[in-house]
Design a protein around this nucleic acid. Structure first.
Lengths: 250, 250
DNA sequence: CGCCTGCTTGAAGCGGTTCAATCGGGGTGG
DNA sequence: CCACCCCGATTGAACCGCTTCAAGCAGGCG
């Protein structure tokens, strides 16, 4: 199974073969496989390791006591949980799966060894952390100031861009294993209204949905609708170089 | 001038006198004083140091091209900019001041020296990073799923709690140097509606406003209105111990 | 077959926005 | 010292984007 995190990291810094072997080995030691709809970790729990998502989709969320739910982020293959943080911390939110998920639990010692002996890898990982924060800020803007149409369009643009960064797009299409209710909880809308917005996007020829997949026939137009500026994803600082990980999308 | 960051850090880990002297010295080297309404750093710029806010209020924000603005966070005395991040990064948002602000620019070398030689301080700083991310997530929930009344109440609760953590509350009162338009941009509402919500909070006896200050006569009731749970601030993991920094609020 | 989950549609209602006008206080220049 | 101005707070009224409620529909699965 490809370590898609490496795809992203190599856009930031040229990793050595040694770096890559080390990360690959660290991601081998402890694997977890979960079914769709399972909780990865719940609010209030104390995580003992750092999650590296290898396959499948998950999401962070918080709920209010009366049932209102906000999805805070989607976790895609190649994403990292919350690294570099003190061991006694309590989760302030929960994480659950949307599809079957495979993840690696990175041992704290391995992360410390990266910080100590693999400076390039460490720098690349700090890019990851930076990007995670920037995405959360963009979501705050999305939910706070964009219209319903812009919100949905923006979310789709982001997901497509992030999947593209780890080689999980096929032409103008990619997976989208989300129900309309989940899209609603991610955008701060009602499921009914998400349905209507999706109809508009479809009738405008900007989105096609099939079999839990989406196709974006005119990405540029969709990005304009969304006022989407990919800079916040902090992807392309150095030119992405093709890499073994990119090619065989098994 | 007290380094209010130390107040927070000492709630996480017991710092040595050496740790404290080191941070104090690092915060001496390069100071910046700004007036109210000035830009600290703009979207697209590349910060060369890490900001430590010593005095006054500032805020992070993003704008859409048609002028819609979302305030993403408030920066209070004792807050840190975005540490531990790669030097070539570009800001994905802007920071501006609300009041006159004094800040220190921490040199990258000093931060590296902390990471290397001051493990307790480094751990405490990573708590800070954790808390910053958690606050951003809570804001996403706030704007996405809370009602207008809850949003405003929640924001006021958060500001009060954060100011209390650095010794900047006086009884049930604290500074609130925000216009209603700024409250609106922080909560994703219109200024007019913020006005109406504040009137309700006032008539319910939950908030009093005077001279850019607020008083919260019944904090418990306000927290219930807001559905405010302070856990996300990641403050009280270890008992806060009184400290020289806490006492003379000059 | 029958059920469950998710999608779709219609209609009514409301929370919040927008527009526009007024008010009030502090600062400035004459 | 006063007149003026400007910004922020306030109020009213009309409007609308989105929610809520409720019902119908389609597909997958035991």
């Amino acid at each position: 199974m490809p370590i898609r995190l490496l795809n992203k990291l190599q856009q930031f810094s040229p990793l050595t073969e040694n770096d890559r072997l080390f990360l690959r080995a660290a991601a081998e030691r402890r694997r977890l496989m979960l079914r769709a709809g399972e909780e990865v970790i719940a609010e209030g729990e104390r995580p003992t390791a750092v999650f590296l998502f290898l396959e499948g989709w998950a999401y962070r969320y918080k709920t209010l006591d009366d049932g209102r739910r906000q999805i805070l982020a989607f976790l895609l293959p190649g994403d990292l949980g919350d690294p570099d943080e003190p061991p006694e911390r309590e989760m302030d939110h929960s994480i659950a799966t949307l599809t079957p998920v495979t993840l690696a639990e990175l041992a704290r010692e391995d992360l410390e060894r990266i910080a100590g002996g693999h400076p390039t890898l460490a720098e690349a990982l700090s890019w990851e952390t930076l990007a995670r924060g920037a995405i959360q800020r963009e979501w705050t803007l999305n939910v706070g100031r964009r219209t319903a149409l812009e919100r949905i369009a923006h979310l789709l643009c982001e997901l497509f861009a992030r999947l593209a960064a780890v080689g999980l797009t096929q032409g103008s299409a990619c997976a989208l294993p989300l129900s309309q209710a989940e899209l609603a909880d991610a955008t701060g809308l009602s499921a009914v209204h998400v349905n209507r917005v999706l109809q508009q996007l479809r009738s405008d020829g900007l989105v096609r949905l099939h079999d839990r997949r989406m196709e974006l026939p005119d990405l540029t137009a969709l990005q304009q609708v969304a006022k989407f500026n990919p800079a916040y994803l902090h992807l392309h600082y150095r030119r992405a170089r093709p890499d073994a990980e990119d090619l065989p999308v098994a």
